[in-house]
Amino acid sequence: MRNRRYRADAGDRTAEDVFRRWCHVAGAPRPWAVLPRHLGPLRAATRADLDLLLPLLPEAVRADPRWQLSEDAYHAELIRGRSPLDDPEELAALYRALVRGVGAAAETAGKPVPPLQPVLATRASAHSWDVALARALEHLIALDAGLRRRRLSLGL
């Protein structure tokens, strides 16, 4: 959420999709950015699509409160507010996951693992974390793009 250069627009999930393909952060809470003032516009923007989608879903899925236009299922997150973006423990876990993902992507691509800096000290500044995370993510995005191009050229 802090590094907007990885999103061409609000709907661009390319970096998140690459991260999900290669990285896993065990037990990490999902980042949360919705505030109570966002609820009305979100409801209005999703109502028509939800009305079309719900009849297509199995009953068990429709019964899940997260599919309803109600904040009840997300009450705790709404009260807690936006996810902190500078928690050093979470940044370290994110960085370790990125390093593992870069290693896995490099191995799959048959390429050497690019040099990445060691995990920073928990007292490191948010800027230092941003730089380290960005470098790792850029390597991961490049490796993933190369693998996807190769698969497309092979018709896989």
Rank of each mutant, 00 (worst) to 15 (best):
T122K: 15
F19I: 07
G155S: 02
I141K: 11
R4C: 12
P114T: 09
W67N: 14
S70W: 01
L39S: 04
A136L: 02
L91C: 02
G155R: 00
D64K: 06
W129S: 03
A145P: 06
L69D: 05
L98R: 03
L42H: 04
A60H: 09
A60W: 08
H38L: 07
T14R: 14
W67L: 13
H139Q: 13
L57N: 10
R21H: 09
V34F: 12
G155Q: 00
D17M: 15
L152W: 08
P41K: 04
V25M: 06
V131R: 06
T46I: 09
R30P: 15
A10L: 15
R135H: 11
A142W: 02
A121H: 13
V25Y: 02
L137P: 03
V18C: 11
L156F: 12
A15K: 07
E107A: 14
D87K: 06
K111V: 11
T122H: 15
E89P: 05
Y6E: 05
L140S: 09
Q68W: 05
G146K: 05
P65I: 02
E59G: 11
V119H: 00
R148T: 10
L91H: 00
V131I: 08
A10F: 15
V113W: 01
L154V: 04
A44V: 10
V34H: 11
L39I: 04
A76H: 01
R150A: 14
P114L: 07
L39P: 02
W32C: 06
R135S: 10
L50M: 12
V18L: 11
P41H: 04
A124V: 01
W32P: 04
H127N: 14
L143M: 05
D87Q: 08
L69G: 06
W129Q: 03
L39A: 11
W32D: 00
H127L: 13
R82I: 13
R82K: 13
A48S: 10
I141R: 14
W22L: 08
L120W: 01
L154F: 04
P55Y: 02
H75K: 10
P115S: 15
Q68N: 05
R151G: 12
V34D: 12
G11K: 10
L94Y: 14
G110Y: 03
A97C: 03
L42M: 10
D64N: 09
R150M: 07
